[in-house]
């Protein structure tokens, strides 16, 4: 149960970008609403995906698959439609999704580095490219990759769930003193 909660939380991580975006928002008051909408859309998609995958592969079949969702898309063909097979569409959409999350976190990383050093953001944008490339090449095998994903998830959990709380407490203390 606890294990399940952890991996579910990891799937919903990503809203931490709001911690950064609020500073740029014209109407920061609406931030909560934006987060709720932003989380509920993927939630609906996740629920649909889980129901479909379990329905098609059954729980027993799903646990033995490396990529259950892709397996689901590969396991049916609809003759007569424009496309008979849909896994390529899925992969295209998935890559688009990766790009949107990538660009925004990339920007956040460059911004986060440029501010403490009080430099312009450009050198950091270019400097991060080789760094990201090297990190992406670290995992050599599929198992390494899954492990790496787990580590990133744990780090994200600490950075975006525990750390903001501590920072919030600190800022309250500071205000109290002043």
């Amino acid at each position: 149960m606890v294990k399940g909660i952890k991996s579910t939380v990891l799937a919903f991580l990503g809203f931490e970008i709001m911690l950064l975006l609020v500073a740029f928002m014209k109407q920061p008051g609406k931030a909560v609403k934006v987060v709720l909408v932003g989380v509920s859309i993927p939630m609906i998609f996740y629920v649909i995906t889980v129901v479909m995958v379990i329905g098609a592969l059954s729980v027993d079949g799903m646990v033995t698959r490396t990529w259950p969702t892709l397996e689901l898309m590969r396991s049916f063909e609809i003759p007569g439609l424009v496309f008979e097979r849909f896994e390529s569409l899925l992969v295209v959409i998935w890559i688009m999704q990766i790009f949107t999350t990538f660009t925004i976190t990339y920007y956040a990383a460059a911004l986060g580095l440029s501010q403490p050093f009080k430099r312009s953001i450009h050198p950091f944008i270019y400097g991060l490219i080789p760094l990201i490339y090297i990190i992406a090449m670290i995992s050599k095998t599929t198992n390494d990759l899954f492990e790496f994903g787990d580590i990133i998830g744990n780090v994200a959990l600490f950075l975006f769930a525990v750390l903001p709380l501590i920072l919030l407490l600190l800022s309250r203390l500071k205000i109290g003193k002043a």
Partner: peptide
């Protein structure tokens, strides 16, 4: 697809 689950269970 169907057989994977049957075999595993």
């Amino acid at each position: 697809t169907k057989i994977v689950g049957k075999l595993h269970s």
